[in-house]
Design a protein around this nucleic acid. Sequence first.
RNA 1: UGGGGGAUCGUCUAAUGGUAGGACAGCGGACUCUGACUCCGUCAAUCAAGGUUCGAAUCCUUGUCCCUCAGCCA
Length: 564
Amino acid sequence: MTEHETPPGSNFITTIIEADLKANKNDGRLATRFPPEPNGYLHIGHAKSICLNFGVAKTYNGTCNLRFDDTNPTKEDVEYVDAIMADVRWLGFDWDDRLHYASDYFEQLYDFAVQLIRTGNAYVDDLNADEIRQHRGTLTEPGTNSPWRSRSVEENLDLFQRMRAGEFEDGARVLRARIDMGHPNLIMRDPTLYRIRKTSHHRTGDTWCIYPMYDFTHCLSDSIEGITHSLCTLEFENNRPLYDWVLDHVAAPCHPQQIEFARLNLSYTVLSKRKLIQLVDEGHVNGWDDPRLPTICGLRRRGCTPEALRNFCERIGLAKRDSVVGVALLEYSIREDLNKRAPRVMGVLRPLKVVIENYPAGQVDELEAVNNPEDPDAGVRTVPFSREIYIERDDFMENPPKKFFRLGPGREVRLRYAFFVTCTDVIKHEKTGEVVELRCTYDPSTRGGNAPDGRKVKATLHWVSAAHAVDAEVRLYDRLFSKANPDEKEAGKTYKDFLNPDALEALRGCKLEPCLADAGPGFFCQFERMGYFCVDAKDSKPGALVFNRTVTLRDAWAKLKKKS
RNA sequence: UGGGGGAUCGUCUAAUGGUAGGACAGCGGACUCUGACUCCGUCAAUCAAGGUUCGAAUCCUUGUCCCUCAGCCA
């Protein structure tokens, strides 16, 4: 890094934090929080927020709380709470004893609401949802006051207490802040603070039948926890005046600063909770952890590492403008990490049988192979070679074009770590004409992969001995959508019309090196020349292995092919 | 058409009145028992028009375009 480069992780928020710390604001303390609502699974957009909040806490010696924003019992569930905690941990972050729930503050929140009533800053409204909407006005016209807006403090207190006691039905009344029905910001036109929901809450059970709204809950929860910097996404910018208003009108312990940043958008996928739920519920994918999904559990199952995801989050930066990060950057981050750590192994995905005619039947050579050229400590292993092997179908062409270096009739190539072989005959299906088998000869003097006479060969192929091969299913994943921005409006179409039907291709009868026979969940590797793969944590069984392709290798040949 | 935000290489992101920089992608090359990795080179941007200034991405004016808000969701 030269002196002109900006240090990684530096952005407009860290600039603010550094200034605040320097000015000894909040007594030089930094406290952030990650506040998910437990109504869905975390996705890569949340990863950005998690890395931000936990990340700044770590680098500036502060703390970051995990807080569940669980104020809507009709949508939330413990299933999500557990999954969210697992995902945050997997990403590599720890909240120690700072696990909180907004629902833990319900009693305090109720007291704050009473304070607002006592000071004339909140009132119980008998209008129903429809009527409230009608009174709200529009973007250009002011709203009108509710007829219930000027009830006495005593009456409001009594009514609010009876709301809590369960005397009224859902929707019968709400508690509203008394701000200004003519406010140019619609959020400030007497926002609802509490609504009646006679629904069991996943943590408080039936203790409550009134539940506080986000705008009332979030700022006060932040304040109760002594948060200094409350980081959220851009769509909450409109809510900031209300965040500040609430804290200014009750005896709040402190007044955190809300700062908004742009949420993550990723090309060729969708990141809205609503759409993700739809894809899962309508069966376009197989559950929340489908490896095609940008959910954290989906990425994990696909074979993405926490390190790769964290590096990605750092690389994308942070700003206030809307943006769409190219999925290529995610793929780059994954390759970068896996290249260092993934053991190399040979796996033939689309097998083509090859018989080495001058190799004695029944003979087996044990050849030495390097486990990871990027990591000398990974050591070596032994790979069996025999008369019948499999190579990749794509590694042979009967009529190779100019720049195709691989095997063809009469050509010599190297079998990795093994021998030079020359193709002597091509056997085709008598009816379809499809190439079904190759006949080759090998040069015994090239054992290990080098010719004593120094002759070179233009290609090195991966291979697996037929007699020793382990069979497996390999699932090839590609981008979920065929369009970079599936949300882009197109006449008569929705994002679902752009789902990529080839996002999953399952190959059966793939031939893997025998050392993979016992690979279990958590195992990942590189199939040389093919990509990075991992054992599927759900469907793989001993004797019936299932591998997922995490990401392909960069492929110069594929690019060349595409051009012509 | 009210309020609140935003606009820098194809994509993300720096530069806070003083050399428009980095990463990804692309292109070209070197190396190579992975057409991988690595290395080198290269292409490429300040929304527009005025103004202030020795000097403007940055300050001022006017305009353009984009996002966001009318849940008893978060």
